[in-house]
Design a protein around this nucleic acid. Structure first.
Lengths: 344, 344
DNA sequence: CTGAAAGCGCTTACAG
DNA sequence: CTGAAAGCGCTTACAG
């Protein structure tokens, strides 16, 4: 152990340069893999780095170079596996690009989102990927643009002047409705919950249009509790209107899982005398019984797309805004059946 | 819009100081909320900051102050809701402390963990919270200690010279075994999967000791597929030994969910002629049917504890290492019943 | 309470 | 290909 074991004894680029008998500028070039420096010199510098246990100081580099190799990611909720998967996709491509993600949770609250966004700017992120909190104003995005902060919207969009990565929710709804209609269902409910945002509207609209296209009534939209645990006991809400549905499409799989339990508790047979379709196709869909038919939105892929959009945006800040909207896919399993006499 | 709309026109502390007619040092004191500066001066500076749209530059501050207000978090897998919850707890506490988390995924691979840890050091994190990848060497931790990197282990531990936040897995196993034993079960299987690490050993040992304490045989440890989707179809593995179990305790809820489906597929009645206990008590436990009896390990709380340990460590780097091990709790629901004549 | 000076560890032109 | 100098935007003593 070297004698100078006080904290300040950080090994600096100058130390490396001296050890390797080159100037600091040359050492800097070696680090940044510049082709300007000869193979032998490079090897000498690299060995010096190893011997001294040199650690590159991004902070110092960023100050001069105006690049932090850091991207901010803001999600509404880490606890929801759906966002965790999105995050996973983002992290993978950001990491592969040699950058690092700074994570924050907005709690789907615009004030929190404000704070967190400011903190990201203070930390000098090169750009941010965020799932806009419900209620985010266009004005907020325009402010960010004015600040020259490279930005991409994920899952939800507020302004088409900013890059966006999402899935075609409306088309997904169409797939769900078409599947049920082909099984003979006419009275189909739509179970929703959570905050209102673009992805919410797109699903509702998708449902409405698909129903209308089939000549069916789209009036049966029922609101479920936001708390996961309370959904099963709210299943009866589906049957309180004048018309009794024979099937339900869910806003997401969290609702579908809950209703699957709740409908069973009510004595209905999901996949038998009642049909159920989820949305998102989370891992659990395949592991419950009956297996859940669900529309896959592939959040990991959306995350990867969002990260790629940001990377592109960093290299070309002036390019026109882009949208990457992936197709959804209906995974047919066991929770739907042909229309039956409504259970009584 | 100001005429100087080129990127370099970043508002600096000096600009603020000039605007407010104070020195740069004074402006700096205002930012850091020092009591040294008078109320009126402070107000003037704060207004100047607002007028100019000043954004604090952490990068520059850190370079001088040797504090980045940044903590690294390394998890093996973002896609597993269990780690997502851990992360959520960490993020909440770190955020409340005015710091920011830099996130990375080790994929439970020691080489990735190496790379990622180096990258964190390059970014100058003040400390790191990590769930050590399976196979992490003590030597690795010692290296980090030598580098003076404040560290806390979460969920799994390699060295007791480093802070640790986890749950008492062995006690949790005892609760599970005791519950089943009290229902008359004698032949109890233990279903495991995944990589081998301290939390794995603690659960296995906990199971063994609890079984022995009851005079029961702990030999029935069966390995399940690591892939979630393959677990249901592996349920039959439980019944390939000489002794036929009447109950199974699962290493985690992922296995429990899968076996719940698989056992049902096999014609068994979970909670009736076969009993099942999960581990972790994820949100889905309450939403499947029968409701899953599970041992809660409260990952969000573990995350909060880990973050607090790190914060304490930052203020007192020389304090002796600490361990914060939370108690587990058995949530009794519907998946266990009194021993019955083995089905079949 | 405030000001002038030095320095954190890099990168960036600019000469050689 | 290499060296000497300036500077990124802060904070830190040190005087006043």
């Amino acid at each position: 152990m070297p004698s100078e074991d006080r904290k300040k004894s950080r090994v600096t680029l100058l130390d490396v340069a001296r050890r390797a008998n080159v100037s600091r500028a040359t050492a800097s070039l070696v680090i940044r893999k510049s082709p300007l420096v000869g193979a032998e010199t490079r090897a000498r510098v690299e060995e010096a780095m190893r011997e001294l246990g040199y650690v590159y100081n991004m902070g110092a580099a960023r100050l001069r170079a105006e690049r932090s190799h850091t991207v901010g990611v803001i999600v509404p909720n880490l606890t929801n596996p759906f966002f965790a998967e999105l995050l996973s996709g983002i992290e993978a491509v950001i990491d592969a690009a040699g950058m690092v993600v700074i994570l924050a949770n907005s709690g789907d609250l615009v004030e929190r989102q404000d704070t967190v966004m400011r903190r990201m700017r203070e930390h000098g992120v090169d750009g941010v990927i965020f799932c806009p909190a419900a209620g985010t104003e266009r004005q907020f995005l325009h402010q960010l643009i004015e600040w020259h902060l490279p930005l991409v919207q994920a899952l939800r969009h507020i302004s088409d002047e900013v890059d966006y990565a999402g899935a075609d929710y409306a088309a997904g709804m169409r797939q769900a409705v078409d599947h049920l209609a082909s099984l003979g269902h006419k009275s189909i409910a739509f179970a929703v919950h959570g905050p209102i945002h673009s992805a919410y509207h797109e699903r509702i609209e998708g449902f409405r249009e698909a129903m209308h296209a089939r000549g069916l009534d789209s009036g049966l939209i029922v609101r479920m509790p936001n708390q996961t645990a309370q959904i099963p006991s709210a299943a009866h809400l589906l049957f309180e209107g004048v018309e009794r549905p024979t099937a339900v499409i869910c806003f997401n799989d969290v609702i579908a899982l809950g209703l699957n339990a709740g409908l069973t508790d009510l004595g209905l047979k999901v996949g038998g005398n009642f049909s159920l379709i989820g949305f998102d196709d989370v891992a659990e869909a395949d592991v419950i019984r009956p297996r859940l038919t669900s529309v896959s939105t592939a959040p990991v892929t959306i995350g990867e797309n969002a990260a790629r959009l940001l990377l592109d945006r960093l290299t070309d800040p002036l390019a026109p805004p882009r949208r990457v909207v992936t197709e959804t896919q209906l995974h047919i399993r066991q929770s739907c059946g042909p229309i039956a006499v409504p259970a009584g």
